[in-house]
């Protein structure tokens, strides 16, 4: 039991973070808070990738004469790409929220639903 919790703590952290983010996306009505939820949700997956790249006793993947064992650099590189994607998604989402606020004068989901002409 202890092994399940302590030995795999990185997975537990990522699962908890991911669910916190997921909860925010679903439960929050404010459009900005939903975006914050999305960011937590994505960061959890980034942490998962980074944690699986760790090699026990390994050093940072930089060419260095004292190093015998390196961490796996590939997940780092993948996540660098995913972070860029995440930043552009956030930027686009924020831009949309600015436009929505201008057009509807509201940022809460339920208020916007009332203002829509075609119903939910």
């Amino acid at each position: 039991m202890i092994e399940l919790i302590a030995g795999k703590y990185n997975y537990w952290i990522y699962i908890c973070l991911m669910m916190i983010g997921f909860y925010a996306i679903i439960a929050k009505g404010n459009l900005i808070k939903k975006i914050i939820g999305i960011n937590i949700f994505q960061s959890a997956v980034f942490l998962f990738y980074i944690s699986i790249s760790k090699v026990r006793g390994g050093t940072a993947p930089i060419l260095w004469e004292n190093a015998v064992l390196y961490d796996n650099p590939l997940p780092h590189v993948l996540i660098l790409t995913a972070i860029v994607v995440s930043v552009s998604t956030t930027a686009l989402a924020l831009a949309l929220v600015i436009r929505i606020r201008k057009e509807f004068g509201a940022m809460e989901e339920d208020r916007i639903a009332k203002l829509r002409s075609d119903g939910p």
Binding site: F22, F41, Q42, F48, L96, R99, I100, I112
Partner: peptide, 29 residues
Amino acid sequence: REALVASYNYLILGTIAATFILLGIGYLY
């Protein structure tokens, strides 16, 4: 203006989908 809301909702769902795909790829890797 409803297009903005449609796009926002699609973005939220689409990003959840993309993150699931990323996670799935991580497990396969």
